[in-house]
Design a protein around this nucleic acid. Structure first.
Length: 270
DNA sequence: ATGGTAGTTTCACTA
């Protein structure tokens, strides 16, 4: 099963690119963030025509919004409200026996001080709640994938300049500490770093504001696929689709994909 | 130190 996650920055505007991702990379499941559309206006028909006939959506007007598109049947699960807000940052489904969580963690604004910036305070609170929630999920002991735009670049090699981004929201020590704590509490395995050595620079987001995103290459790895320890042995491949940043009318984020082999149970049935 | 772009809720907000 191939899983993709992508902050599309408006699903309606990016439909041709979702089609291209489907055509060229053939994910079985696509988790989207920043769909920016209410559920009634979600372009279901267009997505279904791409072969994704099982769709779960949770959107609001203008901001945020998450969705899961699948070629395989899915069972909807309850969406969680982080920080007591119903702001459409989480949606979950069960697919092939795996609990798949699609997450859009708050960006956190510009000022990296929770006393001066409410958005940053919200992000830190969200990350604390993520750690508690991860711990609870681990105790359930089910196969889990947590994917999405986490808006934090945890490793020094997840940003173009560790030194220069220490005071930039997305790579401040407190955010890195909290996202790392959440990862540890869940026991989650970072699927992409499972294959790409941590010493290697790797990004999934490049600002729209750069004159030439590829030439300056001032990126950050904000988008992640985490899997529970039981699923880690089933990982056969994971990658960031950097080239998608160069597609026509791109999102500022690119898709991240991971392949999961069949489970031993499935093999026995076959 | 500043400002740069993109998207939607637009002469303002989020990222």
């Amino acid at each position: 099963m191939r899983i993709a996650t992508w902050n599309v920055n408006s699903v309606r505007l990016r439909l041709p690119l979702v089609a291209r991702l489907a055509r060229e990379f053939g994910p079985d499941v696509i988790c989207l963030q920043e769909t920016k559309v209410v559920d009634d206006s979600f372009p279901r028909k267009d997505i279904e025509s791409l072969g994704y006939r099982h769709i779960a959506v949770r959107g609001m007007k203008g901001y945020n919004g998450v969705a899961i598109l699948s070629r395989l049947p899915l069972e909807p699960m309850d969406g969680k409200q982080f920080c007591g807000r119903d702001d459409c940052r989480h949606i979950a489904v069960r697919i092939e026996g795996i609990d798949l969580h699609c997450l859009y963690i708050p960006a956190g604004g510009d000022v990296p001080d929770p006393t001066e910036n409410d958005k940053f305070a919200h992000k830190l609170e969200f990350l604390d709640e993520l750690a508690l929630w991860s711990q609870a999920l681990r105790r359930q002991g089910r196969p889990v994938a947590v994917v999405g735009d986490f808006n934090v670049a945890p490793l020094e090699t997840d940003v173009w300049s560790h030194r220069q981004l220490l005071t930039v929201v997305s790579h401040t020590p407190i955010e890195v500490e909290k996202i790392t704590r959440a990862q540890q509490e869940g026991g989650w395995v970072d699927a992409v770093r499972h294959f790409v050595p941590p010493a290697e620079k790797l990004y999934s987001w490049w600002s729209y504001r750069a004159r030439d995103w590829a030439a300056s290459d001032r990126g950050r790895r904000l988008d992640h696929i985490w899997v529970s320890p039981d699923l880690a042995p089933r990982l056969t491949r994971a990658a960031v689709i950097r080239e998608a940043r160069g597609w026509e009318r791109p999102s500022d984020h690119v898709p991240v994909v991971a392949d999961l082999d069949k489970s031993q149970n499935d093999l026995k049935i076959v």
